[in-house]
């Protein structure tokens, strides 16, 4: 920038040209150059090629904010599946492995005793060292005992 670049503010009103001058400038400086149709076509052809190359397939994009909820959901799903697939632990008295201790478990033990043979030690429910009818009674007693809320 030199000294000439400084224009006093009062001179800004002189930055407009009279309409006649503007029209004459346009007439003298604007020259219509004929553009051959072949050039138009060449440019448009290049445009088609370039824009097609850059055209992105119209695919759905997940919004970024969904990443964390999706991760949390995924973790929860994995935990649930692991829980479902994990081997279940049953209480000793739940002989038929139906998730509850009831009279059916005492029937199951009675049936095993009736069939005879050696029975596993874990069936010694009352802990007296032998598996016998007392264990059947112990399970039956437990099955019919009232819970804390006085319900069977």
């Amino acid at each position: 920038m030199n000294m000439q670049d400084n224009v006093p503010p009062e001179s800004e009103q002189n930055l407009e040209a009279p309409a006649e001058l503007a029209a004459a400038l346009k007439a003298s400086a604007r020259r219509k150059v004929f553009v051959p149709p072949t050039l138009d076509e060449a440019i448009l052809k290049a445009a088609r090629a370039q824009l097609r190359r850059g055209r992105k397939p119209n695919v759905f994009r997940w919004p970024r904010w969904i990443l964390w909820p999706a991760l949390a959901g995924g973790c929860a799903a994995v935990a649930l599946i692991a829980h479902l697939l994990a081997p279940r632990q049953f209480v000793r008295e739940d002989l038929n492995h139906d998730g509850k201790v009831d009279i059916l478990d005492s029937f199951a033990l009675a049936r095993e005793l009736k069939h005879g043979g050696s029975l596993p030690a874990f069936l010694d429910v009352n802990g007296d060292g032998v598996v016998d009818d007392r264990d059947v009674n112990a399970i039956a007693s437990q099955a019919v005992a009232l819970g804390k809320d006085n319900r069977l």
Partner: peptide, 22 residues
């Protein structure tokens, strides 16, 4: 990727650009 949009812009500025280049 709309090449017709380019065509419209080209027509809009072609003569000005040519005149300026000249």
């Amino acid at each position: 990727g709309d090449d017709r949009a380019f065509e419209a812009l080209y027509v809009r500025y072609r003569d000005w650009a040519t005149s300026l280049a000249y």
